[in-house]
Design a protein around this nucleic acid. Structure first.
Lengths: 345, 345
DNA sequence: TTGAAAGCGCTAACAC
DNA sequence: GTGTTAGCGCTTTCAA
């Protein structure tokens, strides 16, 4: 394959009749070069379609200009959206980004952490995976801490005892906004479907759910919190079946995320009921899925652009040794579409 | 940030009382090292949590062990699925993968191509973006060819005049399978909604659509092919509106992809019609979206795992200078769910 | 089996 | 403004 050896800075220098440092200077534009030589070099770069070797540059500068990102599964719209925003933000800062999908395989997650370190990425961002777990895996924490000594690590969840930066969604606040909207729309019987109590974000939502209900003097019904192992449509579908078996239906249902909501909608539709006339459904995340359902889902939206920016901003700040916040919260807002009605009227 | 300087092979060698070559040997396990020294080195590697610098290694070996992937937008489930399969396959072959999202910004696509070359990736895979265009951008082709001289390029579309490997879906065959199923289910009035005639895969489908209809002696109706600019739900929704305005509805509708089908389903549902009782809908791609709609979408499925494997297999073969096929086709198959009925009975 | 040393391609400090 | 040169951290001949 390597018929044509890659052109190097030496080849350019030689043909231009200058030293390699001069070529390097026009490459980096870090120092002055006479117009004449500069143009000569540029012409040759063009001629040979020369592309500086990023490995050599990285080795020389002892920095790669890369931020590593470990996501649990990019096929999930939530992660895909966030990843793209991170990629954009990183590019703005002059960084490239390397993505690894851990696919919820712990072994892979460990390996990817190592790989990224080997690649000398300047920061590691982890979105989803073990940082979602309510009870942090102590082996993993140890592993992360060893790396965090050398490279800043930014996570979107939590990792107890780990020395990393956190950029989190404000799950509690989201629940509060969502629930107050439902209550103000006359709903008093509200179920929360989906999610697992092993997951931090879910537990936070559940906790705030109870808290807000009690603040409004609404009776909390244990059986209206239905968990599921998967954050996908099957979780929603099965949860809804449980609710049907219970017999006593609430007037509104909160889905733990859009995927779950899709399953809930399916179950309700199959049952011959209409949303929102017979029952209201709301959700969290406002991914593109929430616009694909019939009806479109009212729910909590996060500013993914800001989310991505904050993550990268934190990473870059930490790389530069600046004093950046250890924890940042991303605000949420309500987006009203068609899946929830006011039952006061 | 760099409080603790990264440990190098020299540090290990020194403390172990051996030469760096010995350490390198245990790292690569390319040569024999006495058990005693080997263990000593391994202990130190463990002790210092030493991770070899991939940049240095890459520079030294003049190979990066990385395959670059340019996708148009990873938020699209089709690309996300394919990307993950490529990532898995690459890992199997001992390669890492670097993803860039071109987001349909041509300038970005050019830049990413350069970046990947700079990183000395060993092959570049492009899925979506300019390789989807029916009429290839000649500037881009030239650009690609300059790179293809040094690095194998694998695309999932076409790039006329470019020296790359192609791994393609068999769009024509897919259409044939799909259409024959509809016809065998008694459908004679069939519309094809979505897609643009600038896009190769769409044009191939349209072409075969007409061909198969004529083969079965079914009258081809121009007004039943409705294009759209976007391959998303709005394209489907708007296309369906056009069909409603036409007044004369077909018995079955083919959506160019799942996203489009979602919009079509919305339009039909809004109109108070039922799928598949009043009208059948089928689609291409069988992404997870096709399982989220109500009813679930009957349509063409591709073996994404094989697709990803073939892409990487081709890349790796080309890297090694093996004689791999310039063009490979990925077969498709029909998946029957609930969105299409037999109207013969 | 082992070590010395050259080389991978670049940057940057230093001297002129 | 420009060239020389010493690294950056690793692999791999070549001798021993």
């Amino acid at each position: 394959m390597d018929i044509r050896k890659q052109v190097t800075i030496y080849d350019i220098a030689k043909e231009a009749g200058v030293s390699v440092s001069t070529v390097s200077r026009v490459l980096t534009s870090n120092a002055n070069v006479s117009k004449e030589k500069k143009e000569k070099v540029e012409r040759l770069i063009e001629k040979y379609d020369y592309k500086p070797n990023a490995l050599a540059r990285g080795l020389s500068e002892t920095k790669s200009n890369v931020i590593g990102i470990i996501a649990s599964d990019i096929r999930n719209p939530f992660y895909a959206t966030l990843f793209v925003e991170c990629e954009k933000a990183a590019n703005e800062y002059g960084y490239r980004v390397v993505l690894c999908n851990s696919l919820n395989i712990k072994q892979l997650e460990d390996l990817q952490l190592e790989n990224l370190e080997s690649q000398r990425v300047e920061a590691i961002v982890q979105i989803g995976g073990r940082v979602d777990e309510l009870i942090s895996d102590s082996n993993y924490v140890e592993r992360v801490n060893r790396i965090a000594n050398k490279i800043p690590i930014i996570i979107t969840g939590k990792l107890d005892g780990a020395d990393c930066y956190q950029v989190n969604l404000d799950e509690g606040k989201s629940m509060e906004i969502m629930l107050e909207y439902l209550i103000s729309s006359g709903h008093k019987e509200i179920a929360l479907i989906g999610g697992s109590k092993d997951v931090k974000s879910t537990v936070e939502k559940q906790f705030r759910f109870k808290q807000v209900l009690s603040r409004y003097g609404i009776k909390y019904r244990e059986e209206y919190i239905i968990e599921g192992n998967n954050y996908d449509d099957s979780g929603g579908y099965n949860g809804m079946q449980q609710l049907f078996e219970l017999g006593d239906l609430p007037s509104a249902i909160m889905a733990i995320n859009d995927f779950t909501a899709v399953g809930i909608i399916r179950a309700i539709t199959q049952r011959g009921m209409s949303i929102p006339q017979d029952i209201s459904v709301v959700s969290f995340d406002n991914t593109f899925l929430s616009d694909l359902t019939i009806p479109r889902l009212t729910g909590i939206d996060y500013n993914y652009e800001k989310f991505g920016q904050k993550i990268i901003e934190t990473a870059v700040g930490a790389i530069k040794g600046e004093d950046v916040a250890r924890i940042s919260l991303i605000e949420s807002k309500l987006v009203i579409k068609e899946s929830c009605i006011n039952i006061n009227q």
